[in-house]
Computed example of a mutant assay.
Amino acid sequence: MSRSLHAAQLALLNNQAGLPSAARALIVLAVVMTKWDRHRRTRKALHRLEPHLLKDIGFSRAAAEIEAGKPFWRD
């Protein structure tokens, strides 16, 4: 597991009854930031893959560059 809590764990925590509004807002923020961090890390890794590895996962270099070039906040 990464340094931050996994998004599913944060969502489960957010579903706990009786959490103050501020705590819920911070949990939602943590979930979003965790998702953005995952996007950033996976796109960076995709950008570094060699052509034969891209072929193994069904990506062309052009498709990998397009995906790697997306900002972290986009799905």
Rank of each mutant, 00 (worst) to 15 (best):
M1P: 05
M1R: 08
S2T: 14
S2V: 13
S2N: 14
R3K: 03
R3E: 09
R3Q: 04
S4V: 12
S4M: 09
S4L: 12
L5D: 12
H6C: 09
A7L: 03
A7P: 13
A8K: 08
A8T: 07
Q9F: 07
L10D: 06
A11P: 00
A11D: 10
L12H: 06
L13F: 05
N14S: 13
N14C: 09
N15A: 13
N15G: 08
N15I: 00
Q16S: 03
A17E: 12
G18Q: 07
L19G: 01
P20C: 10
S21D: 13
S21T: 11
A23H: 04
A23M: 10
A23K: 09
R24Q: 11
A25T: 04
I27G: 05
V28K: 05
L29Y: 03
L29H: 07
L29S: 11
V31P: 01
V31E: 14
V31C: 05
V32L: 15
M33W: 12
M33R: 15
T34F: 02
T34E: 14
T34S: 15
K35Q: 14
K35M: 14
W36F: 15
W36V: 15
W36R: 15
D37W: 10
R38M: 12
R38F: 11
H39T: 10
H39L: 07
R40G: 09
R41Y: 09
T42M: 13
T42R: 14
T42P: 00
T42L: 15
R43F: 05
R43K: 10
R43C: 06
K44F: 11
K44H: 12
K44W: 08
L46Y: 08
H47T: 01
R48M: 15
R48T: 14
R48F: 12
R48A: 15
R48N: 14
L49H: 09
L49M: 15
E50D: 11
E50S: 11
P51R: 08
P51N: 11
P51Y: 07
H52V: 06
H52C: 03
H52Y: 04
L53F: 11
L53Q: 15
K55N: 06
D56G: 02
I57Y: 06
I57C: 10
I57Q: 02
I57F: 08
I57T: 03
G58E: 07
F59E: 04
S60F: 02
R61Y: 00
R61G: 01
A62L: 03
A62C: 00
A63E: 13
A63Y: 00
A63V: 00
A64I: 04
A64W: 04
E65T: 04
E65W: 00
E65I: 01
I66D: 07
I66N: 01
I66F: 09
I66Q: 06
E67W: 05
A68V: 08
A68M: 09
A68L: 08
A68Q: 08
G69W: 04
G69H: 05
K70Y: 10
K70P: 02
P71L: 07
F72E: 09
F72T: 03
W73V: 02
W73L: 00
R74F: 05
R74L: 08
R74E: 08
R74T: 05
R74P: 00
D75I: 10
D75A: 13
